[in-house]
Design a protein around this nucleic acid. Structure first.
Lengths: 236, 236, 236, 236
DNA sequence: CATGAATGAGACTTCATTCAT
DNA sequence: TATGAATGAAGTCTCATTCAT
């Protein structure tokens, strides 16, 4: 009898624990986003989750660990998403656009996490994470950038794109542009830009970039190729 | 004895006061950038300026006020700089590129200030400023974006640029791209991108954008113009 | 189903309970010794006994109660040990030495308990015990000291020992010396003293004390007897 | 004028700071002694010194640092005291007794410090100090023990003392006995021993030890000398 | 004006203890 | 009985701000 109770009880408890952890994580995401990591308080997270301060520490060893958990949750599945987007499309141009847009969509769904991750990547909060954690975040993003740059390289090789562009640098720029638009979208203070325009900007921006990549090609090129070569290959 | 204080003494004192204020501001810029506003301490600013903590409060009423002063200093002269850049060039395309690059150059010279301003604009630190201060910052930047969009509008009107682009949105995107590149340049973690590539990215990025603006134009357009119209005009 | 619980089951349960209590006690001894009472945590005791935190409270009402139990366990059988040691020997000198050494041996076997008891007696942790508990500990030790002093008194009365010694005070000193050596033995930082020397010190120390008690006797004594008289008799 | 004020002001401020530091130290001594390091709170130290919590941290970086300061203050001048005591006396026996008694007197004047030091040395609190600090304390005490053992060695060499005693071990025992008596004296719970008897015990105890050292000498010695030799010499 | 000692609110974190299961 | 999640009081430490000199 006790066993019967136990098994289902354990399962429920386990689920509750997971739920609670998830609740805390969500509250932390929001608060870190709203106030920034430093200004956010465990007290407030406890209040929002309707738990006690001590309970938070049952699920996360420290405030820093909580930040780390938010970040890790943020990048989980990120790379797969990009790859899936590329896989679904035929054609270099389509793939590039799809990757670009899927990056935006991915983070648009977890705007708080995006902000926290962005802050962390922007070194502001870097101090609070272990080197391993920082490496994980950096690595994930840089690899994603490289993933995109491979397509650009293919476009150049096949003569579709202008040769005077560094594929990696282009990829970085595209990533930064997407990031910037995300920032804008999430702030989305209507005083600056409205939602409607944003949506258009998402697709238009990559369209313009890719168009620039294509048609701006100089008729002749002598010395511009070397700087791009190998870029999307090995980098430390 | 006190009466011996001459006009020149007063002048010197005045100069010293100004200098001191400027020193504090500079130290604050750096520290806010390095550690973020919350983690920066008045103690450290005092140490760096070789003044006492109390003295800081003689020049700035509070830590928040100090942040405001850093921001205001940051945007002072910003608009003039852009206008001067546009004035120096002939031709729409050149003007647009010049404005874009002058934005980058302007903030590249005060990277600390840029970061603080960016953070502040990105709402992270918004809480710490009065509404007036926030409005000032927002306004300055938005006006600059509009200043740029006017040229784009001219390009569209003259048939130089594709019609399916919202000039304001384009301007926002360009601004965000420039901002993102600045971010990148200032972080400039060689693991992500090297200085050399950056410099090229500055000019290349606007080149691609403008190229995209030009050559991507669809042969015929029926319904795309209306959404953009009036954009660069009245907005709250 | 419940009725199926037999006497032997009860006995087993009883044994298990006792065992569990004993396990907890042992873990507490070690931990209180290792980290001191304040720094030891119930959490850690639970971990070491492989029980849950709640279970500890099933066996001991509070952390303080646990300390008390450790102390009581420590002094249980202590007095009997000393008396047995004295009984086994013939001759005053041998009895004194035997009691002294048996004190050392007794606690050498439970070093953790010794340390906890010593700390408690040394008032450091006194606050955490009820007055009754404190009295019990004090009483046990003081009675042991008096037990030893009786032999010294006999030695003085029989002319074997010098008359200018207060038997009670001597006994206290011997006890403290033994205690100090135990402390040393248990710390046994080889940088201070090695094990080998310690063993010798145990026997040598009491030898020297007793030798001093014997041969240092002044040829004549006029005024030394009064201060010692009645000492080993009535004391609160 | 300002200068004149300044100099004397500075001096006074300096004195006040020193006084305040000393006040805090004294309060800490007492409290660490009364409750033990762990149970003592900065709050309470602040209350006793009539300062605010924050002010304590102006004078000591942390609670641990405060403990260290108490310890360092405790051993400052300790060695000199022992040497001075030895210098004042003629004759080996007198010197040994003087050193022994001066050890007791030294710490009897700062009972709180003694307790804290003793606890720290007894490893209970060792965790809280840096290795350097621990080494300093250990070193000071061990050197003092060696200082005493040198006299014992001289006594053995000159035939005054029995040969079957390890001078270093004897010295350790004497130190531990003195320590134990100090412990007793400071507790001085009249239920255990009264002040009066204590005073006598201080001198009597060393008298007995030295007497034992002298007269217990076996008429002939064959194999006991080797273990003692070199002891007071080099030890790590 | 300049100083820097003092303050005290408030942050993070720990842990004895309780209690529903 | 046993569990371990939850609690919240309490402790250490930081830092913006004030104020007497």
């Amino acid at each position: 009898m006790e066993k019967a109770i136990t098994i289902s009880t354990l399962a429920r408890r386990e689920r509750e624990k997971l739920q609670r952890r998830s609740d805390i994580l969500e509250a932390a995401e929001e608060l870190f986003d709203e106030k920034g990591f430093e200004s956010a308080t465990i007290e407030e997270i406890a209040r929002r989750t309707e738990l006690s301060k001590g309970t938070i520490y049952l699920y996360f060893k420290s405030k820093d660990e909580l930040l780390l958990a938010v970040c890790i949750k943020g990048i989980a599945g990120f790379r797969e998403e990009l790859e899936e987007a590329a896989r679904r499309k035929r054609g270099l141009e389509s793939k590039i656009k799809a990757v670009y847009l899927s990056y935006i969509e991915f983070f648009l769904e977890v705007p708080h996490v995006f902000r926290v991750l962005h802050d962390t990547f922007t070194e502001r909060l870097r101090r609070n994470l272990s080197q391993d954690a920082i490496n994980l975040i950096n690595w994930t993003i840089i690899e994603a950038v490289r993933f995109g740059s491979a397509f650009v390289q293919q476009g150049i090789d096949s003569g579709l794109f202008r040769r005077d562009v560094d594929p990696y640098a282009f990829s970085v720029a595209a990533w930064q542009l997407a990031t910037a638009l995300l920032d804008l979208a999430i702030l989305s203070d209507p005083g600056v830009i409205d939602r409607d325009s944003l949506e258009k900007m998402f697709s238009k921006s990559i369209e313009i970039l890719v168009d620039g990549l294509k048609c701006g090609a100089p008729p002749e090129e002598k010395s511009s190729g070397q700087k791009a070569s190998g870029r999307s290959g090995t980098r430390s």
